[in-house]
Design a protein around this nucleic acid. Structure first.
Length: 873
RNA sequence: GGGAGCAUAGCUCAGCCGGUUCAGAGCAUCUGCCUUACAAGCAGAGGGUCACAGGUUCGAAUCCUGUUGCUCCCA
């Protein structure tokens, strides 16, 4: 055969196989008689680019899908993208601005034209990037949340839920993003701790010349919207204020003093200014005490006409100006440094303003109950289960979902307004018009300007990708739904996972997935979240092109138990790369052996094969049970050790023929057979290199791919063989150690004599193997000690290696005495336990027995060690 | 402020119903080796009062209580 490079080069391999898999259509799935296995991708933002989190998440999905396929299931991984209304619209607005176009100058249709153009141009880049990773998605099924069928599904669901009375329109305090000019959900608000100031402002009591009340506030600019002062009903300091009015500084508007237990007497001065339009708690107080609501802000965060002062100026500019003004007028008592938490918009990083607004809401309580139960009673399993706690807490305290967004990019709310303020909900203007009294014409109908929250389409994803909303009886939805596993991040457990469960129960009467596997966050070495601004994230595609997708997949997986964060380190990828190289070189070794069809199988090869078959099956059953427990990282590590330790370090060394000597045909074929099985076990983790090597080590037909083969089935294995072999390993390692200590090179052959003590049975199964691996020319059993030898003790068996040079007696003595001291100490502990009557009485018999065995073994060993010592003295 | 989780080797973690699978794995470190698959390798070695303090028990990394420190979620 031709020379194969000792370093595995993925660049020549990966693109070739991916293209071939695609060409053969191996990823495509159609319903058939097999058991289905389905995963729907958590759709990434359509204009997003691949980041490290995607790499981890999608590697895991691919591992599950490829494994299911190799278990003979009809595996289908549905890819797609999310229209991500806020993020995408923000990007389009920015891009238009760069071209000198202002969104407000465009009509809705014109803007959407630009948005679709942008989507066509940049959309789906991320899906192509996933191909580099080896993702075996069924690309023929690629979906987008704004595809016609998915769009229509969303609208149908909205109308349906409206008819069921689950969707309503209401005036509510919402989280307002003054930059994006939209309401955002609670989940999209990020609270950050900031240094701010606490202003102590005194308000004059009406009708009194020198009576003041001082309040503390972090937001002096909202003073203009104050409609009450609130104090605790039992606060003695303020009892004199009952029935009095207070004058708002600068405006001299009179507002009432209200008494409510809500107020924390310890905070500030114990007096609270109430601004119902600009704080959720104040809003609730306002509802309770029937206060006037004065909205002093415009939607973009500037002061409105209602503020009377500073009209049109930004709220933060006004904060500075008004505090100056208050100071000049003698209203500021003091200003303290203060840290508090401020909500920021996840998408625009703008400070969120609580704002009174008319929005669409969805009632959550009734839907949350069954969705909670399904997780509580393990109908849906969370991996790891600790996230059940988090889920329970949220579901028990669920609030109604604000589903409208003041954006254009998304599914437009199918509500049509009439000139009289009434509205109807219908699929189209024509449908709406049918429900309208005859006094209006169709042109009087005006559709709602808002679109639906992006999650209002994603929550249908497992159903809508199979068109199961519009066509509930279709073949695909009946076959693939419910899907099997969902792989996602814990931070979207509420706005996505929980809601998909609700939608599933509402529209399929069935759970959407059986298992949820939570991945952690990919962080840098220092534990910081990876982010563009920190610049601490490697470029995923660079990593792949430099190291290969297999190496990247392995590196990331090795270190990311479900639900735990992954601290990314380049060393991880190196480990993956080294592993590829190891497998590659195993292939080079095996392929390099000359095969002699006439050669009889040696005894060594025979016992080696027996052992490896056992070790392989033991590893396999371990790996499979780790898969079953969704402990992927550990399954990979077990596979890694199977390959590196059992297969390469032990087995191949055991059957390896001497230099330029041939191997017998029988053994060779079995070695190749095990190698193939190992590649199959590896394939879900490392799809490319396994396909490559699988084709190199065997004759394959045109349509044959490792990805279409079955993973090996574990068979029963004999634990005894493993134990016996492990003893042989101890001997081998002790000999290696002795060689190292005495500087005996591996090339120089040695003799070994064994003396059994304490009635130990002699098992010669691995004698020849030990001779081969340790380069032993003669191995014999003796009754008496052998002189002039280096010796060591395993259990109570003595081993002697004749030395050419003179033994360093002092050194040997020291070693033996240390060993003796340790064993004596150990014996003492065992004796102590066994002489404890309550232990012997209460502990289970097998525990006591094992202590007795320890006692015997230790005594025998002490005897032998003592003999050796006295011999040297 | 409310809730949850975590604390085991230098790092990342595994250790289920308390007892030979109980102190483990991988990486990193150190020491030898260019041994004819692989120096991206081979062969060895060292590293932990299992956060702290109590308690339960014949026996605790494991169960209970408290303390400290960290993380996340919600307000």
């Amino acid at each position: 055969m031709t020379e194969i490079n000792s370093k595995y080069d993925p660049s020549n391999v990966e693109d070739k196989w991916y293209a071939w898999w695609m060409e053969k259509g191996f990823f495509h799935s159609e319903p058939d008689n097999r058991e289905p296995y389905c995963i729907v991708i958590p759709p990434p933002n359509v204009t997003g680019v691949l980041h490290m989190g995607h790499m981890l998440n999608n590697s895991i999905q691919d591992i599950f899908v490829r494994r299911a396929r190799m278990l003979g299931k009809n595996a289908c991984w549905v890819p797609g993208t999310d229209h991500a209304s806020i993020a995408t619209e923000a990007k389009v607005v920015t891009k238009l601005k760069e071209q000198g176009i202002d969104k407000s100058a465009l009509t809705r249709e014109e803007f959407l034209g630009h948005a679709w153009e942008w989507k066509t141009k940049h959309g789906g880049i991320i899906l192509d990037q996933l191909k580099k990773l080896g993702a075996s998605c069924d690309w023929e099924r690629t979906c987008f949340t704004m595809d016609d069928s998915l769009y229509e599904s969303v609208i149908d669901v909205f109308i349906d839920l409206y008819k069921k009375g689950l969707i309503y329109r209401g005036v509510r305090m919402v989280n307002w993003d003054p930059k994006a000019l939209t309401a955002v959900s609670d989940e999209e608000v990020i609270y950050k701790e900031v240094n701010s100031k606490l202003y102590y402002v005194r308000y004059k009591v009406e009708g009194e010349t020198e009576e003041w009340i001082t309040i503390a506030t972090t937001r002096p600019e909202t003073i203009l919207g104050d409609t009450a002062i609130c104090v605790h009903p039992e606060d003695e300091r303020y009892q004199s204020l009952r029935g009095k009015k207070i004058l708002v500084p600068l405006l001299n508007r009179a507002i009432p003093v209200i008494f409510d237990e809500y107020v924390d007497r310890e905070f500030g001065t114990g007096a609270l200014k109430v601004t119902p339009a600009h704080d959720i708690n104040d809003y609730n107080l306002g509802l309770k005490h029937k206060l006037e609501v004065i909205d002093t802000f415009n939607p973009n965060g500037t002061m409105s006409e209602a503020a009377q002062l500073f009209i049109g100026e930004d709220r933060f500019v006004v904060r500075r100006k008004i505090s100056e003004e208050l100071k000049n007028c003698g209203h500021i008592v003091k200003i303290e440094e203060y840290t508090n938490k401020i909500g920021y918009s996840e998408r625009t990083d703008e400070v969120i303003e609580p704002r009174i607004s008319v929005q669409w809401f969805m009632k959550m309580k009734d839907m949350a109950k069954p969705a909670l139960d399904l997780v509580e009673n393990d109908t849906i399993l969370f991996h790891p289960a600790k996230y059940k706690n988090m889920y329970r807490h949220w579901m028990a305290n669920v609030t109604d979902w604000c589903i409208s967004r003041q954006l254009w990019w998304g599914q437009r709310i199918p509500a049509y307004y009439l000139p009289d303020g009434e509205f109807v909900v219908a699929k189209s203007k024509e449908e709406a018009f049918k429900q309208v009294s005859s006094k209006f014409s169709i042109d009087d109908l005006k559709q709602d300007e808002d679109v639906l929250d992006t999650w209002f389409s994603s929550w249908l994803w497992p159903i809508s990708v199979f068109d199961g909303i519009r066509n509930p009886g279709n073949r695909d939805i009946n076959y693939y739904y419910p899907t099997n596993d969902l792989i996602t991040a814990p931070e979207i457990i509420f706005f996505w996972v929980a809601r998909m469960i609700m939608a599933g129960m509402e529209y399929r009467k069935e759970i959407p997935f059986r298992n949820v596997y939570f991945t952690g966050i990919v962080r840098d070495k220092l534990g910081r979240k990876m982010s563009k601004s920190l610049g601490n994230s490697p470029e995923p595609l660079d990593l792949i092109s430099k190291n290969g997708a297999d190496a990247v997949r392995v590196g990331m997986l090795l270190c990311s138990p479900a639900g735990n964060d992954l601290l990314y380190d380049d060393a991880l990828i190196e480990q993956g790369r080294n592993f590829c190289n190891k497998i590659w070189n195993a292939m080079r070794l095996i392929k390099g052996w000359p095969v002699d069809p006439n050669l009889a199988q040696s005894e060594v090869n025979k016992v080696s094969l027996t052992w490896f078959d056992t070790a392989f099956n033991a590893a396999l059953s371990n790996i499979y049970s780790l898969y079953d427990d969704y402990r992927l990282s550990e399954a990979l590590m077990a596979t890694y050790k199977l390959v590196w330790d059992d297969f390469c370090s032990w087995f191949l060394e055991m059957v390896k023929p001497a230099y330029q000597q041939p191997i017998d045909n029988y053994t060779y074929n079995l070695v190749i057979g095990y190698f193939e099985k190992i590649l199959q076990v590896l394939h879900p983790f490392m799809p490319f290199i396994t396909e490559e090597i699988w084709h190199i080590i065997g004759e394959r037909k045109e349509e044959e791919s490792i990805m279409l083969t079955r993973q090996p089935e574990p068979t029963v294995f004999n634990q005894k063989i493993i134990e016996k072999f492990s003893y042989a390993c101890d001997v081998i390692m002790a000999i290696r150690n002795a060689r190292k200590e005495k500087n005996i090179p591996q090339k120089e052959s040695i003799k070994l004599f064994i003396r059994k003590n304490n009635n130990e049975t002699t098992d010669r199964t691995y004698d020849e193997l030990i001779m081969k691996l340790c380069n032993i020319s003669e191995l014999g059993y003796v009754e008496k000690k052998v002189d002039g030898c280096l010796s060591f003790v395993i259990g109570s068996t003595e081993f002697f290696i004749p030395l050419t040079e003179i033994l360093d007696v002092a050194e040997e003595l020291k070693k033996l005495e240390e060993e003796l001291a340790y064993t004596t100490g150990f014996l003492g502990k065992v004796l102590q336990k066994l002489s404890n009557e309550s232990f012997v009485k209460n502990a289970p018999a097998n525990v006591v027995d094992s202590e007795r065995k320890k006692l015997n073994d230790a005594e025998a060993r002490i005897r032998v060690l003592g003999e050796q010592i006295s011999r040297l003295l």
